[in-house]
Amino acid sequence: MRTLKLLWQLTIPSLVRQPAQPSLGLRRDPAPSVWSYRYQRLMLTPFYRRLVKVGLPVGAVLAVAALWLASDDHRALVAAKYDAMMDAVRERPEFMVTAVEIAGADRALTAAINEVARIDLPVSSFDLDLDALRRKVTDLTAVRSAQVKVNPGGTLEIAVVQRVPVAVWRYADGLRLIDGEGVMTGMIAERADRSDLPLIAGDGAKDAIDESLRLFSAAAPIAPRVRGLVRMGERRWDMILDNDLRILLPTHDPVPALERVIALDQAQQILDRDVGVVDMRLGDRPTLRLNPVAAASLREAIAANETVSVAPIQEDH
């Protein structure tokens, strides 16, 4: 200011006589000029006041930020900073998962779960997608349900409920283990691996697993002789005993039919005879089919002894 005054005094116009200063005794007119009056009234208007006091600073900050962000380098810088900050939080030891605990699974299933989950430890719990992990584990055939959670202390707990196989199903590709709901839980190489489980076969066998289990329990008196059940035409069962004896069971109520056969067996040892097929499909007319040798000897015996009466066949027609 002083410099400016000095410069002004060096110029020629400063030598021209200035109008007389008002004397100090007189008070300056306090009246505002028209424009300052209008300006103040404008500023006291709530809308303009807010515009100036809030709108302008916010606008200025936004404009500066937008200009700065207009360059790719700056945007990349911001992104890098942001990532670094997020990583710093993620990598904190409080959020790290260092161990996986699998509960409720046997050894083979544990190995399978480890194979499926494929977690590289240690990993931040922010990076774990627990839902996807649970879905992957549940997709395993041997798993009925699974619960996945991160416990405090950095352990990932996978609690599974395993499917229990109740039968062996012989299928085109080999021997499958299936559980009570008909879901395959795994495969075995040989029948002897799970000789404790009954064997079923045929298309649609797994859909009727309940019925087959009832049949197996009904067949308990002849259990040592039972080789397995075969689903025929996806509607009824054949029970195969040893030496290829086949019991054809009806579509409806197969268990009473089987019980009848067992009762016959207990009374007349029907199954110990040289019989090929016991046909129980028609409940009121059980039928036996002899093996060829037995049939031939029966026929010879009939021929030798005409008087031997066979069961008369009543011809109605």
Partner: peptide, 17 residues
Amino acid sequence: RAIRTAVQQAQKDAQVR
């Protein structure tokens, strides 16, 4: 001008237009 002075001061005092 006198009215402006008074009104402006009163407005400033009241902080309202």
